[in-house]
């Protein structure tokens, strides 16, 4: 299938590939997908004390569109607050990357990865607060 230029651009020059310390309480990690399905995304966010995502990293096993979707997701969420990042929809990614219908699941996975990373971060914060309260 022919890819859009934006997919090719992201897949060839992915932004923010890497790993953050998953044990850091200010880091949220989302791991979604399954090897048997042909795509796994890990997206991580590092959140400042005032709730702004100051860094985001990803690693993806998947096709070019999956790599591009996660690369774009990290680019978009950096500098946003956690609440703002949570509003990103897969349809925004589809539009930006011009994904064909057969690749929409890649964008769904990227949205899931963002949400999962945020949920992990929030769970850590809740646990931290609970530990402090005790």
């Amino acid at each position: 299938m022919a890819y859009s230029e934006k997919v090719i651009e992201h897949a060839e020059n992915p932004r923010n590939v890497g790993t953050l310390d998953k044990d850091d309480p200010s880091v949220g990690t989302g791991l979604v997908g399954a090897p048997a399905c042909g795509d796994v995304m890990r997206l991580q966010i590092k959140v400042s004390d005032n709730g702004v995502i100051e860094d985001a990293k990803f690693k993806t096993f998947g096709c070019g569109s999956a790599i591009a979707s996660s690369s774009l997701a990290t680019e978009w969420i950096k500098g946003k607050t956690v609440d703002e990042a949570a509003t990103i929809k897969n349809s925004d990614i589809v539009t930006e990357l011009n994904l064909p219908p057969v690749k929409i699941h890649c964008s769904v996975l990227a949205e899931d990865a963002i949400k999962s990373a945020i949920a992990d971060y929030r769970a850590k914060q809740t646990a931290k607060r609970a530990a402090k309260a005790q």
Binding site: Y3, A11, D39, F61, G62, G64, A66
Partner: peptide, 9 residues
């Protein structure tokens, strides 16, 4: 390494 990503690369 996923096959389609490889073919794209």
């Amino acid at each position: 390494v996923e096959g389609e990503a490889m073919m794209m690369a």
